[in-house]
Design a binder for these strands. Structure first.
Lengths: 330, 330
DNA sequence: AACGACCAAGTAAGCGCTTACATTACGGTC
DNA sequence: GACCGTAATGTAAGCGCTTACTTGGTCGTT
């Protein structure tokens, strides 16, 4: 080496600076800078059996909720000297599995994955390779995994209850696809359960499921609202804000005013939700916090195979806005 | 090994299947599956001097335009057997530099980076380590880098010209911060240049710059529109859709109708742009294509140090909607 | 002055792969 | 049947680090 030292000293200067003479260390660092030398992570990983990589698997980057979780994790990991490896499953269970394999190949030391709806082999793989992981965004009491997230069923029960308390009796719902997305299933169950407890049905023709796309929500809304005013739904629960905003567009075309003629609710509290008139009633989830908690937990889990590590439930914040109001009198 | 073969054969079964007996190969793969063995990328990287990793650096995940580029790149890279390493600079030049260092440590074979506004050392580092890279989103003829993106100056000249053609003479502009973001500077210059060519000024008090946040845009809009109707601006060019939508909210509070009382334009064509009444005039950039082109180019560049490799200019698509119209008669 | 404790730096093995080269087996050619 | 070409597999070195162990120098103690 240019500094005339052994490789061991170089290694120590970087990894255990306290074990090396300050002046020596400076010489090494200067030489490294002069040569433009950058350590090779592969060599390091091989020798130390530590990669300082952690993985995260999310459905898609096109959703601000997941992007926020990723941002949060990245900042925590960076602070701990870890690098984030990101994979998107695009809601395809096999893609998720392949991503996990790829991550194991890369030697991730821990992994965060959105949701529980993944093939059992995926989790088996993680267990077999002793990679600690957490499931994010979802929280279920009887989940076999360590969860950091929201009880979606409960959240939608709460929302439905509020609408019931406002006097609504005829409900409809507009939801996104349920495949490989138990959260959506849970949300629908939440609505149905709460209505059931109130002795009200949610007839199949009042529940539409389709692409999470504003135009489709608008069309479905128009269809749901066909019929005599004293028979059509007065409350429409949507699977997320995007659908609710789409439905509001449909309402505009119909000349119906949200909050007066009918009530509508979303989920997520996107930036728009509060800005679109008359303001969308929705639930906000602190996804940044989820990311922070998940990353923090993973950092704790690395190395310490014991535990116990506990799931964390985040309760969404109900944000009542103009789009919901008392049921119109008949 | 369980299959009773040498490590060389295992390696060949995976990397050069044609060089190995089909039956042998099957035995190896079966044994690997049974043992739950997964190759170790660090060992492979060290031995072969190939990591099959490429990096991408974007300002933030919170913007759908970058998220889209990343999605596209990821799908191209995956198809080629490469893995994407993502870094976010949060518009902080030094963070970007650190990310690049981290990526070199990880052995990225190529790198995509959004924009040119990065410290010279960053690009020096890449050159010194012979890592091919492309700059995305931005395109400038006299850029020293390989660019795949948009000429932002030209785009905003075009937009401004359309407004001039519609008869507008009093302009205002609402923009996001210009620090470490030459694209914004270019956009502002585009507006100013075109107005200059038409003999019109863009006085400093008619140009507001601040956080890219809807509420602030709304406030700025209200302020810009203070004054007598025959003196206030009739056309407001916004730095992006978010600001334009914010400004539209401000207009609503003022009782002004976009497209009739004034014209307003954005940039990006976010999902909302077409859905918010009366529809936002804006420019759409095919960011997915940018990602695909960038990734494709990088895949070509790896290994082939020669070239020549050419920049690619993507021309945004002007989307005229209800928010712009002829200048109101005085 | 001799000894041991201690700190700083060097030595060398080995992490899990790839790959150049060596070996073996087999079939075709004259 | 001796020879050679070819295909399939094995052998072993070495990629750039980390780390247990070794060495050597410096003090403080008796």
């Amino acid at each position: 080496m240019l500094a005339g030292v052994s490789t061991a000293t170089v290694s120590r200067s970087i990894n255990e600076p306290e074990k090396v003479n300050a002046e020596m260390r400076k010489r090494v660092l200067d030489a490294a800078a002069e040569l433009g030398w950058i350590p090779n992570a592969a060599g390091r990983a091989l020798a130390s059996n530590r990669t300082h990589i952690v993985g995260a698997i999310i459905p898609t980057l096109d959703a601000e909720i997941f992007a926020r979780q990723v941002s949060a994790m990245q900042s925590v990991f960076t602070r701990h000297g870890y690098t984030l490896f990101l994979g998107c499953s695009n809601y395809d269970p096999m893609a998720g599995y392949q991503q996990v394999r790829a991550m194991l190949t890369r030697g991730v030391e821990a992994l965060a994955i959105v949701g529980e709806d993944h093939p059992a082999e995926l989790f088996d793989l993680l267990k077999h390779h002793r990679v600690p992981y957490v499931v994010t965004y979802t929280y279920r009491l009887d989940s076999p995994h360590l969860c950091i997230g929201v009880d979606h069923r409960k959240a939608f029960r709460t929302m439905t209850r509020r609408l019931l308390e406002m006097g609504h009796r005829r409900f409809a719902a507009i939801f996104q696809p349920t495949e490989s997305n138990r959260r959506v299933v849970d949300r629908i169950h939440g609505v149905a359960d709460e209505l059931g407890d109130a002795g009200l049905p949610l007839p199949p023709e009042r529940l539409t499921i389709g692409p999470a796309d504003m135009d489709r929500a608008a069309r479905d809304f128009v269809e749901l609202m066909a019929g005599r005013p004293d028979e059509r739904p007065t409350a429409v629960v949507c699977g997320n804000d995007l659908l609710a905003i789409g439905a509001l567009n449909g309402a505009r075309d119909l000349g119906l005013v949200a909050g007066r003629d009918f009530s509508i609710t979303g989920f997520d509290d996107l930036a728009l939700a509060s800005r679109i008139p008359p303001g969308l009633t929705t639930q906000w989830v602190d996804n940044y916090r989820i990311g922070e908690l998940a990353a923090g937990k993973l950092m704790n889990m690395i190395g310490k195979s014991d535990g116990p590590f506990e799931s964390a439930e985040l309760v969404p914040e109900l944000r009542l806005r103009g789009s919901s109001g008392p049921a119109p009198s008949p």
